[in-house]
């Protein structure tokens, strides 16, 4: 499918996720957290993954880093990472989860900024200790050198008085500062890809804006690829080049941010956009919501996963056949029977 997705530019993508399926085998049944997600991340671009909670955004991020916890497991799909000096990209899905190769990539080439700044650092060690450790894991430098670099990093992410702050414990810092520390730690080894999983959800609005500014600024300076995972359409609009909309573990629509916002194709994307409060809206009108709620992961609907909540669902088609991600325009894809015919044989 990846080959059907048009290249935004001539370069091969930095990261290609292809038919990724990550399932959780619990006692109550199998939860298909990610169920055939495919997308690409271009070098130097920012990609946003958006969807309601439980749609598999975070599990996708964890899958890329191969740190999905048991009973979760990648059951199918490829995660191809282009590496600077290698001819062929490496398939992360095939690597040994605790092996040396993937560990060199984790934190070294792909870094993660996590959604909980309050608990993402261990309270038992100083911030400095935890960042220095990251640097020394991936680079052959001494303690002193690593410490100096850490101070530089802290300064870069806008932490006042970094020489003093480096020796503080996480519980001595505010949420905003902690998230900056987190970003500094992620950047410490000059990663090619930064995954930011809900980087601003737990912060107040002003701090949110500052952190987003910081991320954008750093992205422009370092030219790395950024994957922002969020449920906030505002963050998407502000930050990203490309958007991936996920629903129940699948990509339902993807494309450049302008097209997604101005010509959303999938009914789910349209519904998501309608539910953003707008200052231009008529006062005292009710904000549209998406009917129904996300189905329980153990009983995902047959056919198109969105059909029970979809205003445009076509009985006999949407509840029987599974739509595929098909091109709408050059770089814009949607997975909906409004735009393509179901395949001849319904999946059994």
């Amino acid at each position: 499918m990846a080959d059907q997705i048009a290249r935004a530019n001539g370069q091969p993508p930095m990261l290609t996720v292809e038919g990724l399926k990550t399932y959780f085998f619990t006692d109550e049944g199998t939860v298909r957290a990610v169920d055939g997600a495919s997308f690409e991340v271009q070098a130097g671009k920012t990609v946003g993954i958006v969807g309601e909670s439980g749609c598999g955004k975070s599990v996708t991020a964890l899958s890329i880093l191969r740190i999905v916890e048991r009973p979760g497991r990648i059951v199918a799909g490829q995660i191809l990472l282009r590496r600077p000096n290698a001819k062929a990209p490496v398939d992360l899905a095939l690597l040994e989860a605790e092996g040396a190769e993937i560990r060199a990539i984790r934190g070294g080439e792909i870094a993660l900024v996590f959604q909980e700044p309050m608990t993402s650092f261990s309270p038992h060690y100083t911030i400095g200790n935890q960042i220095v450790e990251t640097i020394q894991l991936h680079q052959d430098v001494g303690k002193e050198e690593a410490r100096n670099r850490t101070i530089e990093l802290l300064r870069m992410v806008g932490i006042p008085n970094p020489e003093r702050r480096i020796d503080e414990y996480p519980f001595e810092l505010s949420g905003g500062l902690r998230q900056r520390m987190m970003i500094a730690m992620a950047l410490s080894c000059n990663p090619k890809i930064l995954i930011a999983d809900e980087p601003t959800t737990a912060l107040d609005v002003t701090t949110q804006a500052q952190i987003l500014d910081l991320l954008r600024d750093i992205q422009q300076r370092t030219q790395m690829s950024v994957i922002i995972i969020t449920h906030d359409m505002g963050v998407i609009a502000e930050m990203t080049d490309d958007v991936i909309v996920m629903y129940l573990g699948r990509v339902v629509e993807s494309g450049p941010v302008d097209e997604i916002f101005h010509q959303p194709k999938h009914p789910y994307t349209q519904a998501l956009l309608r539910s953003i409060p707008s200052i231009f809206a008529e006062p005292r009108t009710k904000l549209p919501t998406i009917a129904g709620s996300i189905p329980h992961p153990h009983n995902r609907p047959t056919g198109c996963p969105f059909h029970p909540r979809c205003a445009e669902a076509m009985p006999g088609i949407c509840d029987r056949h599974e739509p595929r991600l098909r091109p709408i325009s050059e770089a814009h894809f949607a997975s909906c029977f409004l735009y393509h015919e179901p395949e001849a044989a319904p999946p059994s």
Partner: peptide, 21 residues
Amino acid sequence: MRKAKSPAAADNGIDEALVTS
């Protein structure tokens, strides 16, 4: 919560959604 698994519900998504709710 474990859902009731009836074969009739399994082939009809809407019914199944109702069972869940």
